[in-house]
Design a protein around this nucleic acid. Structure first.
Length: 886
RNA sequence: GGGCGGGUAGUUCAGUGGGAGAACGUCUGCUUGACACGCAGAAGGUCGUAAGUUCAAUUCUUAUCCCGCCCA
């Protein structure tokens, strides 16, 4: 694959000319593909599977960018890096989409029938299934597509069956009547964590329930008066003195006339409301528990459509639950039972899919018994076999695991893994089996039918880290890549997914599914709101890639963000990343323009100070970037590279190299500059490649000594002998002088074209030597003509003045100096120096500081004092000269 | 009610037990033979509030207020 030729490198980087080209080169060349290799250490990540018919959103973009950075980095480090991709069948979401499309044809799934409907879903899946994987390619994801999996493919489905049967045989899967969360719109049960609790304004209705015999009543408050039709008791706390005498008495349920007892139960909070609670076992999870303890009947008054059932009585039957609420309130009021209505905000459960208010509903469902599975999962995290990054998520995970409740796994859907249980209609025998059951094992009847429900989608994704590697078969892949190295995912699915993978891995592989869990935050809009369809505030990553390039998007997502924290999407930050790409592009363009006659085989001459400095800085950057990646501080790693490339390489090194490249006087020195320029650039590209894969490949392919692909270039290793403290120190001093002169030029409005005469005064011999060595640098970068002195007998009066570490700077400006203005400038500087000096001296005169602070800190403060006080002296002298001693 | 995160420059965010940083925005000046998606310079912060630990706190501890999230 060819990069653009040097002659056609445009001055503005255009990702569209570059990205697709390199991606298909990588993929076709098989660079993403890996296989078991016992000689090599594995590094493995399985991708959190996106919804097969969904499309890429910013959350995916972030999640996959992080994974790609880690994978590309480890691959360059020489690991056998596997990033295994795949998609999820997303039961509710996908089924809902297909039902919507059917609705447009005026059809329902029931009219179509199960088999025909499923055919339609598969067609839908074939049609849209490649959209998201195509989009991931555009992001640059270097995952091994030859291993792509799907939660409903043959292997994953087999894993699901295997797990279900094993859990069933161990007694960890059971079927029971229970209160579950029913979504009247999706027509299915959902698990506890799929319910989102939102605070909503509502009312507290205070109602009186009269006694059967004699007068009097008890008062209670409810937010859901319509459920009173299903009331079967009233409860008070056993220790509540106020109601002690009433326990056991019989009440008459208003509007209904049902007789019901007053009971006691610990669940009642005597300090809340009136301390009296109505008990509706069929429509409230807490009441359900109370009902079980007291063996109360269950009266179902709301049906699966969210409408009042026959049990609700003829007056209310068929009414929507909210219509019914209004009618009940009116009726209670009319009959004098309603005492008062208060405003009351309370948390209401909503379906995470369709946002409909959940109806707690009594029904028969399948559950996984969680306690025995949770225990080893708690242990694995507590003893460090699994590590959360950042660490604080450990507590969130443990807290949830320790209070775990059984997991409702059946869904009243058609799209998914059908529950492998058959019922005999004749003898009611129940058989769980991997193979279809045709005949009842007990009575031999052929009148058997399979459970109509499917499993929760998360049931199959819980197996993802091992089902994708071949389980339940004991494959070589499984032995080599499992447990995976790291799981990268959003903080919003720790419970849904991470926790479930952990207990599944432990239960079926006898080993944790991953060592590290790298948790990231959510991508919010610019105002800090969650991106959502209903708000219409989502930003489409594909639009961003088309306008600014995938590299810019990736870089923007990864910078200025700390692990676990949310990230706001600011367009300005995207532009910043795009500008950085362009900067890199132009620095490379400059380098390549000056490299046309470069001989990669040649040997460079002596390094200049600037060479030694940038080479030394580059070693430090290698160490920093590698260290930050190791610590999952991807944002810091990116920041270090940004600063190195922009501020040090471009702003200083390239500028210092220019005279050496343009002037043809010294071919050896020119060659040396070419060599340093190209080698540091090449190394910087390699360090940046995991973050910005496309642009780095494009440029790298032009550089001398490049290989087949930057993807497979060895990760740069710092060489300690190239770290050059002297060079860094000397360059630092020269940079300070240059900055001081530029400052003066700016302040004094010296026209840029004009070459300023500058006098440098340095009493110290070593400092003078540095200045003399660096005269060329100062002259080139400060636009000045330099003369260096040990001291000046008669400092020029018409001059601007500055002091940096051991160097006094005079910029003579005959006729341009406004003495008053210069005095004011110096006074301001003096005040700043003296303020700082006072602070330092305060410290140094504190005996506690001298005796207790570490020696190096004290030394540092002393050196600072010395520098500040010499600066103070110089400024004072200058001031007294300017004001003529007045 | 419990837990967690955040409160640092005009804005968005990094960071740290010992001299407050970046990007964007603002101001000044620049067709400087890579780049105006650029170059050079500048202004701008009592690091939410109060107490404590320490020689030293923006950083650690406690309390408190505000914002957000999760759980009940």
């Amino acid at each position: 694959m060819k990069a653009l030729s040097t002659a056609e490198i445009p001055s503005t980087y255009d990702p569209r000319l570059v990205e697709d080209k390199w991606y298909s080169f990588w993929e076709k060349s098989g660079f993403f593909h890996t296989t078991v290799n016992a000689e090599q250490e594995p590094f493995s990540i399985v991708m959190p599977p996106p919804n097969v018919t969904g499309q890429l959103h910013m959350g995916h973009a972030l999640d996959n960018t992080l994974q790609d950075i880690l994978t590309r980095w480890k691959r360059m480090q020489g690991y056998n890096a596997l990033w295994l991709p795949g998609t999820d069948h997303a039961g509710i979401a996908t089924q809902a989409r297909v039902e919507e499309s059917l609705a447009k044809e005026g059809l329902s799934r029931y009219e179509l029938g199960r088999e025909e409907f499923l055919k339609r879903v598969w067609v839908w899946k074939e049609q849209y299934g490649s959209r998201i994987t195509t989009q991931l390619r555009r992001l640059g994801a270097s995952c091994d597509w030859r291993r792509e999996r799907f939660t409903m493919d043959e292997g994953c489905s087999e894993a699901v069956l295997e797990v279900f049967i094993k859990l069933y045989q161990k007694g960890l899967i059971y079927r029971d009547y229970y209160i579950t969360n029913w979504c009247p719109k999706c027509h299915t049960t959902i698990s506890d964590i799929e319910v989102e609790h939102l605070d909503q304004p509502g009312h507290f209705y205070h109602i009186k329930y009269p006694f059967k015999d004699g007068g009097g009543h008890v008062t209670l408050a409810t937010t859901r008066p319509e459920t009173m039709l299903g009331d079967v008791a009233v409860a008070v706390h056993p220790g509540d003195e106020r109601y002690r005498d009433l326990v056991g008495k019989i009440l008459i349920l208003p509007l209904v006339g049902r007789e019901m007892p007053i009971i006691t139960d610990e669940y009642v909070d005597p300090s809340f409301g009136t301390g009296v609670v109505k008990i509706t076992p069929a429509h409230d999870p807490n009441d359900f528990e109370v009902g079980r303890r007291h063996d109360l009947p269950q009266v179902i008054v709301i049906d699966k459509e969210g409408k009042m059932s026959e049990e609700a009585g003829p007056r209310y039957q068929g009414l929507d639950r909210y219509e019914c609420r209004k009618k009940i309130v009116r009726d209670l009021d009319a009959q004098g039972y309603l005492l008062k209505t208060e405003d009351h905000a309370h948390a209401v459960g909503h379906c995470y899919r369709c946002n409909t208010v959940i109806e707690p509903m009594l029904s028969r469902q399948w559950f996984v018994k969680m306690k025995p599975l949770a225990e080893p999962s708690i242990e694995a995290v507590k003893n460090g076999r699994i590590r959360f990054i950042p660490e604080r998520f450990t507590k969130i995970y443990l807290n949830w695991m320790e209070n775990i409740r059984d997991w409702c796994i059946s869904r009243q859907l058609w799209w998914g893994h059908r529950i492998p249980v058959w019922y005999c209609r004749d003898c009611e025998e129940m058989t769980a089996s991997k193979a279809p059951v045709k005949k009842c094992a007990r009575c031999g009847s052929l009148n058997v039918e399979q459970d109509p429900d499917v499993l929760d989608t998360w049931f199959s994704s819980a197996l993802w880290p091992f089902s994708t590697l071949g389980w339940p078969r004991q494959t070589l892949d499984l032995a080599y890549y499992y447990p995976t190295t790291v799981m990268v995912t959003g903080r919003d699915i720790i419970f849904f997914w991470v926790a479930r993978m952990i207990f599944s891995g432990l239960a079926f592989m006898n080993e944790v599914p991953f060592r590290d869990v790298f948790i990231h935050g959510l991508v919010m809009d610019a105002l800090g709101r969650k991106m959502s369809k209903s708000l219409g505030n989502g930003v489409d990553p594909i639009d961003v890639i088309e306008s600014h390039g995938a590299d810019s998007l990736r870089f923007m997502l990864v910078t200025g963000n700390t692990p676990g924290n949310d990230l706001r999407f600011h367009f300005e930050r995207l532009e910043g990343a795009r500008n950085f790409a362009n900067k890199l592009w132009n620095a490379s363009r400059f380098t390549l323009m000056n490299l046309e006659d470069f001989d990669p085989e040649g040997r460079p001459g002596a390094y200049t100070l600037a060479d030694r400095w940038i080479i030394s800085r580059y070693q430090a950057v290698i160490n920093d970037v590698t260290g930050y990646l190791q610590a999952y501080e991807l944002g810091e790693a990116a920041r270090v590279l940004y600063e190195f490339i922009w501020s040090e390489f471009c702003d200083w090194y390239i500028e210092l190299a220019k005279p050496r490249l343009y002037g043809k006087t010294n071919q050896t020195d020119r060659y040396t500059a070419q060599s340093v320029l190209s080698s540091v650039l090449k190394g910087a590209l390699e360090l940046l490649h995991p973050f910005m894969p496309f642009i780095t490949e494009e440029i790298w392919q032009h550089l001398p000594g490049h290989g087949v692909t930057i993807m497979r270039a060895p990760w740069p290793a710092a060489r300690g002998e190239l770290i050059d403290q002297d060079a860094e120190h000397e360059m630092g001093a020269l940079m300070d002088v240059i900055k001081a002169i530029r400052h003066i030029r700016g302040e004094m409005n010296v026209p840029p074209g004009r070459r300023a005469e500058v006098l440098l005064v340095a009493p110290d011999k070593a400092v003078r030597a540095v200045l003399e060595k660096g005269t060329g640098y100062i002259e080139a970068l400060a636009g000045a003509a330099i003369k260096t002195h040990k001291s000046l007998e008669q400092p020029p009066e018409q001059a601007a003045h500055a002091v940096t570490r051991g160097v006094e700077i005079f910029v003579p400006l005959k006729g341009l100096i406004d003495v008053d203005k210069e005095v004011a400038r110096q006074e301001k500087e003096l005040a700043a120096v003296e303020k700082e000096l006072a602070r330092v001296q305060g410290k140094l005169s504190n005996p506690g500081f001298l005796s207790k602070a570490p020696a190096d800190v004290v030394e540092k403060e002393k050196a600072k004092e010395e520098e500040l006080s010499s600066k103070q002296t110089a400024i004072k002298e200058r001031l007294s000269m300017l004001t003529g001693g007045k």
